[in-house]
Design a binder for these strands. Sequence first.
DNA 1: CGACTCTTTGAATGGAATCAACGGTCGTGG
DNA 2: CCACGACCGTTGATTCCATTCAAAGAGTCG
Lengths: 244, 244
Amino acid sequence: MNTVSDIQCEAATCRPESGDDCAAHGICALRAFARTDPSVFDRISKQRRLFRRGEILFHAGQPFSYVCAIRSGSVKSYLCSEDGEAQVTGFWFAGELLDLNGIHHDSRACVVEALETTSICELPTDFLQQLFADVPAARLEMLRNMSAQVHGAEELIRVIETKRTDQRLAVFILEMARRATLRGLSDSEVRLTMSHTDLASFLGMARETLSRALSRFDTDGLVRGRGEVILIRDSEALRELARG
Amino acid sequence: MNTVSDIQCEAATCRPESGDDCAAHGICALRAFARTDPSVFDRISKQRRLFRRGEILFHAGQPFSYVCAIRSGSVKSYLCSEDGEAQVTGFWFAGELLDLNGIHHDSRACVVEALETTSICELPTDFLQQLFADVPAARLEMLRNMSAQVHGAEELIRVIETKRTDQRLAVFILEMARRATLRGLSDSEVRLTMSHTDLASFLGMARETLSRALSRFDTDGLVRGRGEVILIRDSEALRELARG
DNA sequence: CGACTCTTTGAATGGAATCAACGGTCGTGG
DNA sequence: CCACGACCGTTGATTCCATTCAAAGAGTCG
């Protein structure tokens, strides 16, 4: 899927000027600081790993020894209930931080799996602790980031509780487009790197229901295409639908 | 509802020995530290306010100038959509921290309203910043606390997406009982300080559906009572139901 | 007591899950 | 190279659960 040059290219999204909404902003702020101390910078930039589609970044319950930032590609996080059912809890893209909710019991809260070739950046927790001690802006950014995740989760709850299936889908598509713009991509083209099964699980509906909703969106002219790439044709109508 | 002596009594739950799960633990850790500097301690303990049932602690959009810890009583948080519909996002009890998800854009993310006579403790953000600078354990606790909130929100998402109505209710009752034990109360008696309307909104179901589910729980011997106080009669069956 | 809010219960409707079957793609191995 | 199986996506028919609509009972407060 991605070539090495793609990765190098997307890695550039991890820069301070990405704007406040960029989940990697806190980290980037740290990098700016680290320039005064090259050894710290090296410590960040050398902790990189590459995963292929289907490979597991980490399992639930593993010790929480580093925070994970995505440099390129995408991953899904999911929980396994006792009966073996997988429940997808989120999708994460370049420039975003992963599984911060594992911090509170020092272990990974979920399984994270690469949806495509994915490059990540590992930030050891002890290193972060030191950084928080030294850089007030860093800990503020971290708080903001986690706060944003709580906010996002609550927003999702609100959507799931109050919206019907096609409303949920509309919200998701718009959210994907929004996050794509943070990575400097088009705001009218959404790449669904996850399977319909994963997405349906995330949105809390049956695969069939999702499929039907996507078909309806296509025939109604809201979007174009149902495959990996979806083109937003009528974003205003989508927004209207998302509002309820 | 609560007398002054009740409040003084419950305020005692805000102590370090409350255990790791207590949401106020971070704050309490700060208080322990503050003993070496009485002026800091004063600064915390003097920022108290009392609210009566129905009174608003703060509105959505107001500046985020302090973190709010509940000393006694209970509150609900809710969002108002554009069409005036209120969506309850959570309930908070003594020893818990409020609306941390507002941090990321420096304004309150939701409306918070007292469900009964409620005493709170205000922790100014600039004071917390100073505290985080001085006390590593404090910022770790804050991170843990927020992490726990993300975790809780995701857990709620999982429940809402995958469970039927009575399963959701079972999860909620058990969760309420768990939180009650953190405050040193009985684990088999749940006080529902919120209205059924609020609870139904929070659980993502119609008032009538909640009412029916509660009735069923009562007649089936899972719980006793449907009013403000609910007695857990068969916690094992509840747990079984909650597991799905 | 009467106005109000909240809760309960019943009956009908509707939306999504489920069940079932089919076409497509991909990777494996004969 | 093709056959096969595994997985994924689509579509149709049916079932079931929760919402909605409607109305009456219970509790609270002025």
